[in-house]
Amino acid sequence: MTDVPALDVLLPRAPLTPVRLEPRDDEAELVDLLARARPEGRGDVMVRANMIATLDGAATGPDDVTGSINGPADLRVFRALRTVADVVLVGAGTVRQERYRGIDLPAALEETRRAHGRAEPPRLAVVTRRGDVPDELLGTDLPPLVVTVASSPRLGELRDRIGAESVLVAGDGDGDGPVDLGLALGLLGDLGLTDVLTEGGPALLAGLLQRGLVDELFLTWSPTIVGGPAPRVLAGAPWLAPPVDATLVHLLHADGVLLGRWRLHATA
């Protein structure tokens, strides 16, 4: 792992006692840091969001994907968070843009995952009102869960293709109504998928935050400025009233990249 940077723990830290998380194949120290106990009083399902932004607030680069603004430090946290997630919840637009093909972990991280009591690999769940999921993803060895609505024009096709048990109907969607995200999380919880990691996109994160459904936000600041009309990490959300307050849990650093973990205080 010669190209992978160490991570400095800036907060919290004892005075004059630097803490460094050197890269390891199993990332046991980093996973332990990220897998601490959930906040109290938040129910059975815990939702954590992992996003990245440039210094000028762009959630993607000019190519409309995150690959042009992230790097090795962000990838370390990205993989470690997946290691302790039961399910990765992603909007269909992000699945298409970022070309998701399932959730694969390196073998060493799979061992760390088992050490944290998770025998099964993390599932991918795609949120889509219309049921639009790339054929390449549906054809994988472990197809995703599809979270959709009863009025989805592809509901029957999806059930035939990946099995009715893999299609979660969260709301009726009448009048172009969206997926009921609260119901969706309940359905995932019923399957035993209680540690939910969402990787966006910005529209899905906005929907979750509007409903007070996010427990923690992991936000990476990429030391670059891109300009342009790129979306923020929230897209399409009205003003949150009142705003969602956050408490800093820790702040990591590597080569100018800052990686913050924030505990959110839901207002809904």
Rank of each mutant, 00 (worst) to 15 (best):
19 V>T: 03
180 D>G: 12
72 P>F: 00
188 L>K: 01
27 E>Q: 09
220 T>R: 01
252 L>E: 01
74 D>T: 00
158 L>A: 14
7 L>V: 00
232 R>Q: 13
87 V>S: 02
1 M>E: 05
189 G>D: 04
49 A>H: 01
125 A>Y: 07
172 D>G: 15
216 E>F: 04
6 A>F: 02
247 T>Y: 05
46 M>C: 15
209 L>E: 14
183 L>S: 03
184 A>W: 05
225 I>G: 11
1 M>Y: 04
67 G>I: 02
259 L>F: 01
23 P>R: 02
242 P>H: 10
201 G>C: 03
77 V>A: 01
265 H>T: 14
236 G>Q: 10
237 A>E: 06
63 D>I: 09
114 R>Q: 11
194 T>E: 05
76 R>V: 00
46 M>F: 15
201 G>H: 08
34 L>K: 03
50 N>K: 03
185 L>A: 04
113 R>M: 08
31 V>A: 07
192 G>D: 03
17 T>I: 12
37 A>Y: 04
20 R>N: 01
88 V>E: 08
237 A>W: 07
25 D>W: 03
4 V>T: 07
36 R>T: 11
165 E>P: 10
59 A>C: 03
93 G>L: 07
96 R>Y: 03
13 R>I: 02
212 G>V: 10
60 T>F: 11
82 R>K: 12
166 S>M: 11
187 L>Q: 06
143 P>R: 06
38 R>D: 11
219 L>E: 04
207 G>F: 07
118 R>F: 08
54 T>F: 13
248 L>F: 12
37 A>V: 05
156 G>A: 13
68 S>K: 11
136 E>S: 14
63 D>P: 01
122 P>H: 08
144 P>W: 06
172 D>R: 15
255 D>M: 02
145 L>D: 03
62 P>D: 12
20 R>L: 11
154 R>G: 09
62 P>V: 08
154 R>Y: 09
29 E>S: 04
32 D>S: 07
3 D>V: 06
257 V>G: 00
171 G>T: 04
151 S>C: 12
228 G>E: 10
95 V>M: 09
124 L>A: 04
157 E>V: 02
42 R>T: 13
8 D>T: 03
1 M>R: 08
251 L>I: 09
58 A>R: 12
41 G>P: 04
243 P>G: 07
78 F>I: 01
249 V>P: 09
226 V>M: 14
165 E>C: 07
137 L>F: 02
30 L>R: 08
111 E>L: 12
54 T>V: 09
13 R>T: 11
12 P>Y: 14
78 F>P: 00
167 V>H: 10
176 D>Y: 07
108 A>C: 06
3 D>F: 04
18 P>G: 08
34 L>Q: 00
27 E>V: 01
140 T>V: 13
198 T>P: 03
119 A>D: 14
185 L>D: 02
43 G>N: 05
142 L>D: 06
202 P>S: 15
263 R>V: 14
8 D>L: 02
131 G>C: 05
32 D>Q: 02
